[in-house]
Amino acid sequence: MSDDKGGKMTPNDDPISETRLREIIAAYGADPVRWPGIAADHADDLLRQYPRLRATLSEAQDLDAALDQLPAPEPSRALPARIRNLPRAMDKRRSPGLMGSLMSVVWPAVPLRVPVSVFGIAAALGLMVGVLTSNPSSDLSEGPVLLGDNLVSLVLMIGDM
C-alpha cells in the first residue's frame, strides 16, 4: 500500500540495507503490505537476507496484533441518511419561501432586502404624514415648536411599534 520509493528492484537499484529495513519495520509494522514499494515487493528475500531482524519483526507483529484489537468506529444509524440528504437540506434552506417567491415575481432581479427596505421606508413616511395631517392642532402656522412636538411623538410612536 505504501507508495514511496515504489517500483521494481532491478540489479541497478540500491539494495535495502539492514538498517533501512529495521526503520521500515519500526515505522510501518510487520506486515509487508504496509511497507513502501520495493521493500514490500521483496519482503521475503529481505527477511531471509537479514535473519537478525526476526526479533524486530516479532515485536512489530505483537504491536500490530494489539492495534488490530481496536474495532473500527461505526457511524450512528441516523448519520448516513442525514449526510446523504445534505444537498436537499441545503436547497430547502436556500429556497425563498412563499413571500420571497411573490416578491421575486413583483420585483425580480434584485435581492429581497431592497423591496423590503423600500416598503418599510414608504410605510414610515405614510405613517408620519398620517399623524401630521390627522391631528387638528397640527397647523404648520402654529410654528416650529408644535411641529417639533409632533415629530417627537411620531418617533416615540415608531419606537413603541
Binding site: M1, S2, D3, D4, Y28, G29, R34, P36, L67, A72
Partner: peptide, 13 residues
C-alpha cells in the same frame, strides 16, 4: 491514515 485507513506514505504525507 497509514495503519488503519490504508493510505500510502506519500498520500498520508
Amino acid at each position: 491514515l497509514t495503519y488503519y485507513q490504508g493510505l500510502g506514505n506519500r498520500e498520508a504525507a
